[in-house]
Simulated assay, not measured.
Amino acid sequence: MLYYAEPVSRLIEELSKLPGVGPKTAQRLAFHLLNVPRTEAVALARSIVEAHDKTLYCSVCTNLTDSDPCRVCGDTNRDRSVICVVEEPRDVVAVEKTREYRGLYHVLHGALSPIEGVGPEQLKISQLMTRLGDPELREIIVATNPTVEGEATAAYLARLIKPMGIKVSRIAHGLPVGGDLEYADQVTLLRAIDGRREL
C-alpha cells in the first residue's frame, strides 16, 4: 500500500539508502526537505550532483580531490620522506586536523576483510607499492583503524614493505584524552601500557 505521494515515497526510498539512515530517519529527512524553501532543496540537489561529477581520485595518493594531483601531493613544502597510509579519505581529514603531520598520504579505500570478500586487489595497495620506489621515501606510517580488519591490513602491508628496507611504523593505540581506566576494554588498556612513553 502506498502511504505517501509517489515523489515523496521515492525520496524516502532514496534517502534510506544512505549509510546509517533507516526508514524513520529517511522519512524525517524527506519531510524536512519538503518544508525548506525550494532554493535550499535545489542547492542541496546541485551540490550532490556537482560533488559526484567533479570529484576524482588523486593519481598519486588516491584521495578524493577536485584537482590532480591533490593539494597535499602538489604541495612542495610537504615532507616527501614519509607516507601515512589510511583506510578512507575522511581519515586524511582527521590527521590533517591535528596540524602536526606534514608528510604525504596514501588512501587504501578500505581494509582487508576476507569475510566480506575484500582482498588486496580491491584496495589501492598496488598504487602504494608503485610509490615505494621514490628514493626520498624513508618511512610508511600505517594509520589503519584499530579493528581486526585494520590490524590485518597493517600486518599485510608491513610484510610487503619491510623487505624493501623502508621503515614501517604503526600509529599508537590507547586511551582517549579524558577517558577513564575503569571503562577501557582490556585490549585498549594493554595497548596503552605497551605504547607508554617516558615523561
Rank of each mutant, 00 (worst) to 15 (best):
T76V: 14
G119M: 03
L190M: 09
L44I: 14
D180G: 03
T188Q: 08
A30P: 00
V85P: 06
L44Q: 10
A111P: 01
M129Q: 10
A152N: 06
V148P: 07
V95H: 05
E13T: 05
V82F: 01
K17M: 12
G119V: 02
N63Q: 13
C84L: 13
E198M: 06
E87A: 15
E198T: 10
G178N: 03
P7D: 09
E87S: 15
K97A: 10
V21F: 07
Y156F: 12
G165D: 12
V107C: 10
L199N: 12
R90A: 13
L123M: 11
S16T: 05
R196Q: 12
T147E: 06
P37M: 00
E198Y: 02
L64S: 01
L157V: 03
G165T: 07
I171L: 14
I12R: 00
T39P: 01
T98R: 05
D180F: 06
T76L: 14
R10N: 15
R191T: 02
A26D: 04
E13F: 07
A41Q: 11
Y105L: 06
Q127F: 01
D185C: 04
N35T: 08
S126Q: 14
T25H: 07
N77C: 04
T147Q: 13
L44S: 10
I141V: 15
G20D: 06
C70K: 04
G20K: 07
G174E: 01
P19T: 13
D194K: 07
G74T: 10
V95I: 15
N145T: 11
R78F: 07
A155L: 15
